Amino acid sequence: MAEEKTIMERLFQELDSKTKALNEENGQSFIENLGLAMEDIYQNNRELLEQATLADRRKAFQFAYLSLMQQQEIQANHQITPDSIGLILGYLVERFTEGKKELNIVDLTSGSGHLSATVHEVLKDQTLMHHLVEVDPVLSRVSVHLANFLEIPFDVYPQDAIMPLPFEEADVVIGDLPVGYYPVDDRSHEMKLGFEEGHSYAHYLLIEQAVEALRGSGYAFLVVPSNIFEGENVKQLEKFIATDTEMQAFLNLPKTLFKSENSRKSILILQKKERDVTLSVEVLLANIPDFKDPQQFQKFMGELNEWLQQNHHKN
Rank of each mutant, 00 (worst) to 15 (best):
L270P: 07
A213W: 03
Q271K: 06
T243C: 01
L237S: 05
K259Y: 08
G231F: 07
G216K: 01
V234G: 07
K255G: 04
R215F: 02
K255F: 09
E212G: 03
A220R: 01
E212V: 02
S260L: 03
V211N: 04
Q248M: 11
Y219I: 12
K255Y: 08
K265L: 05
S260D: 08
L251V: 12
R215A: 13
K239F: 08
N252K: 06
K235E: 15
S263L: 04
D244W: 09
S260R: 10
V234H: 08
F240Q: 11
K255S: 14
I269L: 14
K255R: 12
F258C: 12
S260H: 11
E230G: 01
G218I: 03
T245L: 08
E238L: 13
I241Y: 10
K265I: 02
R275T: 07
I267G: 02
A242Y: 05
L251W: 02
K259A: 14
G216N: 02
N233L: 02
I241P: 05
R215V: 10
E232H: 08
S266W: 04
F240I: 11
A242D: 14
E230S: 13
S260K: 11
K265D: 05
G231T: 07
L257P: 02
P225Y: 09
E246A: 07
L253T: 08
I267F: 00
E232M: 04
E261D: 12
L214R: 03
K272H: 13
S226M: 04
K272W: 09
L251M: 14
E261M: 07
E230W: 02
N233I: 00
F250M: 07
K265N: 13
K259H: 10
N252H: 11
Q271M: 06
V223M: 01
I228S: 01
A242N: 14
L237A: 07
N227H: 13
A213S: 15
F250D: 06
L268M: 02
V234T: 15
R215P: 00
P225H: 10
K265S: 10
L270V: 12
M247A: 14
D276C: 02
K259P: 06
K265Y: 03
S263A: 09
S263K: 01
F240K: 10
P225D: 08
F258R: 13
S266R: 06
G216Y: 01
L253F: 11
P254A: 13
Q248S: 04
A220F: 03
F240C: 11
L237V: 06
L253I: 07
L257K: 06
L214V: 06
F258L: 11
G231V: 09
N233Y: 13
L251D: 00
G218C: 06
T243H: 03
L268Q: 00
N262G: 11
